[in-house]
Design a protein around this nucleic acid. Structure first.
Length: 502
RNA sequence: GGUCCGUUCGUCUAGGGGUUAGGACACGUCCCUUUCACGGAUGAAACACGGGUUCGAUUCCCGUACGGACUACCA
């Protein structure tokens, strides 16, 4: 008996992959790597009406961007191909038939409209309708109909679904890796549809059959599946199969208020909930992506990993390999986690700072000569959250000041500052070796001989050169502007500042 | 409504029968710096409530409240 770990990520191609889905994929990936197992990708496209073109590619591209590619599955191949459920359609029918023949499932001929009507009646009475042991005898199915009538209905091609015959009185229990024992009584479950009238299986059947065939050992999925887990257990029992180990992940919640994180929150909060930018093929509406917003894949992964899991130590920055190493199902939390943009940004800043300067320079300042571009990156590295801010920073830096910080001017512009700036204007003319260190040396020396305190003029010098009262290291800035530019900026500023007499 | 799941600073969380309840983000203050940012230090900030069990409960049990998920021929 093989004890090889096999996990899967099984999204539906109904739109862009949600960030919660990405976290599910990540946890699956981490467990597989941690235990030397296999991570596979299966596409659950059994609902033909909700298929969205491009969604499958989007999923693959997202996983590739983050570096958590599956070992097996759609787009990769493997021993259990095909991995797209629509292409495995015929398989499921045979399993459903097996359940019919063993009496674990039955045909139901009730139309969707009939059931809706029944539901409406129940609802008007303040109760909920359940298709179960109590009601199925009064409905149109192979349990209530005579053998002849069933025969006839089937032969005449009357549409039907196959439903699981849920036992009336039984307690279903299973041990979840995250929630421990979960018990549910079958009286609160209904006879779920296994095969739809269009010949496609429902999620429940396809999922259980495929997880079994593909030898999945651990099912790691979102908490929204917890209520249907007992049904899946029942299915495994009906087939006589061993159920995999379940782990139901806590949900990702809205940053404000309550509820599941949704696309709407992203639009409202100005942050992405999708890994990559997505253009809706129907409406053309574009949704932001972590990548396009400027989040680095390592930062996105690290941030996501910590939403619902932690290593139990005080280390927060983890590479993917370190995550693999530290990961365990046991340390996943039970309660839902609110998405916090500030924390995401903080992670990104950490990774931006760690990023090789040369790469940032060539990727984000491609127009600028590499040596200078790297100097700019160094200058702004601590002041940006997203690397693409670099271009804007450099543009602002390079532009001639349009106006001068009036508050600083009001406070610091005095005759001593004027004297200092005049002295600086003269002395920089003589600097041959135009580098931050030598500029600093000369300016300091000049101010000292003039008997002017640094504090009295330096901020005015900054305002004169950049227009701003705050900014990066002035000496390095001067080096980057170049001697001629500095001289020009200084003389323009001096001409505009009010003239002060001694 | 029913079923199930959950609840430690504003947020992510550590912890766990006896602790000054720890860390991180954000926020305040201070230091560093010519300024800002970075960095460092520091402050404010939490065990939902009520009953048990116990010498002792934030920790275990039960209720309540609150929150969430699910309740389709969607996944």
């Amino acid at each position: 008996m093989s004890s090889k770990i096999r996990v899967r990520f099984a999204p539906s191609p109904t739109g862009p992959l949600h960030i919660g889905g990405v976290r599910t994929a990540l946890y699956n990936y981490l467990l597989a790597r941690k235990l030397g197992g296999t991570f596979l990708l299966r596409i659950e496209d059994t609902d033909q009406t909700r298929f969205v073109p491009g969604a499958e590619d989007y999923i693959l591209e997202s996983l590739a961007w983050l570096g958590i590619m599956p070992d097996e599955g759609v787009g990769i191949g493997g021993p259990h191909a095909p991995y797209r459920q629509s292409e495995r359609k015929d398989l499921y029918k045979a399993y459903a038939d097996e359940l019919i023949s063993t009496g674990k499932a039955y045909y139901a001929f009730d139309s969707a409209e009939e059931l809706d009507a029944i539901r409406a009646v129940y609802e008007s009475k303040g109760t909920a309708f359940q298709y179960n042991a109590l009601t199925r005898v009064k409905l149109k199915n192979s349990l209530s109909m005579s053998p002849g009538a069933i025969e006839e209905a089937l032969a005449s091609g009357q549409p039907y679904v196959i439903r699981l015959k849920v036992p009336a009185k039984a307690e279903i229990r299973f041990q979840d890796s995250i929630r421990d024992w979960v018990h549910v009584h079958t009286s609160s479950m209904d006879d779920k549809v296994l095969m739809k009238s269009d010949g496609m299986p429902t999620y429940h059947l396809a999922n259980v059959v495929d997880d079994h065939i593909m030898e999945i050992t651990h099912v790691i999925r979102g908490e929204e599946w917890l209520p249907s887990a007992p049904l899946h257990i029942l299915l495994y029992q009906a087939f006589g199969w061993q159920a995999p180990q379940f782990a139901h992940l806590p949900l990702l919640l809205k940053p404000e208020g309550n509820g599941k994180l949704s696309k709407r929150d992203a639009d409202l909060g100005g942050f992405p909930v999708f890994p990559l930018e997505w253009t809706d093929p129907q409406s053309g509406v574009v949704s932001k992506g972590f990548k396009q917003e400027g989040y680095l894949p390592e930062a996105t992964l690290n941030f996501l990993a910590f939403l619902g899991w932690n290593p139990g130590t005080e280390q927060e920055l983890f590479s993917l390999d370190e995550l693999v190493n530290a990961f365990s199902l046991e340390r996943i939390n039970k309660a839902g986690a609110k998405f916090d943009v500030n924390k995401a940004k903080w992670f990104n800043e950490q990774y931006v700072k760690q990023h090789p300067v040369s790469e940032l320079a060539s990727a984000y300042l491609p127009e600028i000569e590499s040596g200078k571009a790297e100097a700019f990156v160094q200058l702004f590295l601590d002041r940006i959250t997203f690397p693409q801010e670099l271009g804007q920073k450099v543009a602002e830096f390079s532009a001639f000041p349009k106006e001068y910080d009036s508050a600083v001017l009001a406070n610091k512009w005095n005759s001593e500052a004027q004297k200092g700036l005049l002295a600086i204007q003269t002395c920089i003319e003589h600097i041959q070796d135009w580098h931050a260190e030598s500029i600093k040396h000369v300016i300091h020396g000049t101010l000292e001989t003039e008997g002017i305190k640094m504090g009295k003029v330096m901020q005015m010098l900054r305002v004169a050169l950049s227009g701003n009262g705050a900014g990066p290291d002035l000496m390095i800035s001067m080096e980057l502007w170049g001697k001629q530019q500095v001289a020009e900026r200084l003389s323009v500023a001096l001409a505009q500042f009010p003239k002060l007499s001694e």
